[in-house]
């Protein structure tokens, strides 16, 4: 069957159509991938130990970087916000300013970005290498679903670890702000924590919680997908890893804005 060449005027339309279909197909594959992973979470057998290993992989191994970045983020906030507030004579509000920035925005976003760089890239590389060395095919021909063994435990672990890591980030950050505001700049401890307790309410904490929960799914979803659909050879793995980190980071920020407009 030979195709007749398309008239010249229709060629741009043809290109646009092809492009649009390719995008929709890619999104469809991306969505089906998550759907399949969630499907395997609902049906036995459950890979409990794989899930625990993933918490270790994503969570525990990122702990140090979370502590470091959380602490310094809080300290920087403490310093910068203090010098802004002092111009309005309202440095008493340093506590709530630091806490609200961390809890509503910076904690979930920065923790997610850090974990993406630390564990997300490793996740993509690991699964990508399993793909190019045919380990994923080996699972498939053993009549075992690789999604159940590799993807679903990672996504579930993301769901559990991201809120915890965000909470750690926030807490460490608040104490980082305390260190600068109270110990260094001489604010009173009571003012710092007291005003914080007055202004932060459960809605703020829930907002951060929902954000981190969704980032947990987002990052593990993107990173496992990119690893699973890796190209050829070491170059393919390298590209997939970069793609996964870039796409995760962009989606985190886009989704963060979206959540910010939807949530109270």
């Amino acid at each position: 069957m030979t195709e007749r060449p398309l008239p010249l005027v229709l060629r741009p339309l043809d290109a646009i159509g092809r492009g649009a279909i390719a995008v929709v197909e890619a999104l469809g594959r991306f969505g089906m991938f998550l759907a399949e992973a969630l499907g395997t979470l609902l049906t036995p057998p459950f890979k409990f130990w794989a899930f625990i290993d993933r918490i270790n992989y994503i969570g525990y191994r990122s702990l140090l970087i979370i502590l470091l970045t959380g602490g310094f983020t809080g300290m920087v906030l403490g310093l910068q916000v203090y010098f802004t507030l002092v111009r309005f004579g309202s440095e008493a509000y340093l506590g709530p300013a630091v806490a609200l920035s961390l809890i509503r925005e910076l904690g979930p976003v920065l923790a997610a970005l850090m974990v993406t760089g630390r564990a997300g890239s490793a996740l993509t590389a690991e699964i990508g290498i399993m793909r190019i060395t045919e380990q994923i095919d080996a699972l498939t021909v053993m009549a075992l679903n690789p999604v159940r063994y590799l993807v679903a435990p990672s996504i579930l672990a993301g769901l559990v670890t991201f809120p915890l890591m965000t909470a750690i980030f926030d807490t460490v950050g608040i104490f980082g702000g305390y260190l600068v505001g109270v110990e260094l700049l001489g604010l009173s401890q009571g003012t710092y924590f007291g005003e914080m307790q007055t202004f932060v309410d459960l809605n703020d904490i829930m907002m951060g919680f929902w954000k981190s929960l969704s980032f947990g799914v987002l990052v593990t979803w993107v990173c496992t997908y990119k690893g699973f659909h890796v190209g050829h050879g070491a170059e393919g793995v390298a590209k997939a890893t970069t793609d996964a980190v870039v796409l995760s980071s962009v989606l985190i920020l886009v989704w963060d804005y979206f959540m910010g407009t939807v949530l109270p």
Binding site: I52, G59, Y60, L164, A167, I168, D201, L202, D204, I205
Partner: peptide
């Protein structure tokens, strides 16, 4: 196996403490 369990346990404990601190102390749950 035990080593992984301990590290995961440690991680979850620290995370829960932080979450607890935020929600009880600041969120007034």
């Amino acid at each position: 196996r035990t080593r992984v369990n301990v590290t995961v346990g440690l991680f979850v404990l620290i995370g829960m403490l932080a979450l607890g601190y935020l929600s009880v102390n600041l969120g007034r749950v």
